[in-house]
């Protein structure tokens, strides 16, 4: 059993990300850098760069949209797929990879929705429609639905390692599906109505400040993703800890009902009620693993 699986008494027992002050500072610094880089991108994108010859001010969306799409479609989903695979691989099995995959998918969904929204905002004045059944749009939407299915499965209460395994399989099945969806949607468009006209060449000739802003957009959004990922991961660790703690507390309360002496005690007494790493209480009552609401599975 990996150390992450144990029922610890404090969240710091779960992860160095919670424990070490240096890790906390690293997260904080990444967050601050991301905020500064994003502010810089906004400033460059809205004030410094000139409007485009043909697209006017609309071109400013280009500083954001490709970066968001890159994070959502490649970074987040790729990371989730790799982390899920590493979880399923017996030698690297650890709840770390499970939580990382979950965090990546959740942040990825946010970025995916932002991709679709920013694309729609750009598409309405340019193409005249909010949504076109373009190959890229369609596969992005399918990807979003696959992401959402993964998250829906994760919300089903279960023991952490059962949930982790189940989610990892679903992520894997979805990841395998992505290239197939990509090609089928591509052919669907191109074979159906000939070459699509809705595929604008976004960067034929961009120079100077525009190119730099575009690049900065990628960097800042990647930083935002990394920061959100780390924060979400930490929340995941704390959630699991809270779930196991609530169960411990409930157990102690329930046991106190039987003994008339100490009814007021609701907290977990470390000398008595704390389950050890093997999920057993001091007096040998098997409490099993944490976070399994009755009838949830």
């Amino acid at each position: 059993m990996s150390p992450n699986l144990s029922v610890g008494s404090s969240p710091s027992a779960h992860s160095p990300l919670i424990q070490s002050a240096r890790a906390r500072w690293t997260v904080r610094i990444i967050g601050i850098t991301a905020a500064v880089a994003t502010a810089l991108t906004v400033w460059l994108g809205l004030w410094v760069t000139p409007p485009d010859v043909s697209q006017g001010d609309l071109v400013r969306l280009v500083y954001i949209h490709p970066g968001v799409a890159w994070v959502a479609l490649y970074l987040a989903f790729g990371l989730a797929a790799v982390a899920s695979l590493l979880y399923l691989w017996p030698r690297t099995r650890s709840l770390f990879w499970d939580r990382l995959a979950a965090a990546a998918v959740e942040v990825g969904v946010v970025f995916n929705v932002c991709t679709l929204i920013s694309g729609s905002i750009w598409g309405k004045p340019t193409w005249g429609v909010w949504w076109a059944w373009d190959a890229r749009l369609t596969s992005t939407a399918v990807l979003l639905v696959l992401f959402l299915g993964y998250l829906a499965l994760r919300r089903v209460p279960a023991e952490p390692d059962v949930r982790a395994k189940r989610s990892a399989y679903v992520a894997l099945f979805a990841a395998v599906d992505v290239p197939i969806v990509h090609f089928s949607v591509l052919w669907w468009r191109t074979l159906h109505q000939g070459a699509t006209v809705l595929n604008p060449d976004l960067s034929p000739t961009i120079h100077g400040s525009m190119a730099w802003t575009l690049l900065l957009g990628f960097v800042s959004l990647t930083l935002v993703f990394v920061w959100m990922l780390l924060v979400r991961y930490r929340i995941g660790v704390l959630e699991d800890w809270l779930g196991s703690r609530e169960l411990d507390v409930a157990l102690v309360e329930r046991r106190a009902e039987g003994t008339p002496v100490d009814r007021s005690r609701t907290g977990v007494d470390p000398s008595h009620g704390e389950p050890g790493a093997d999920g057993r209480l001091d007096d040998g009552v098997d409490v099993g693993r944490p976070v399994v609401p009755e009838g949830a599975r």
Partner: peptide, 23 residues
């Protein structure tokens, strides 16, 4: 098989299966 033990199977299964079967 993945959703076999779940109480929410009836609602979850179509949501997971249909997008995968889109191709």
């Amino acid at each position: 098989a993945l959703s076999a033990g779940l109480r929410v199977r009836e609602t979850l299964l179509p949501f997971l299966l249909l997008p995968i079967a889109a191709p």
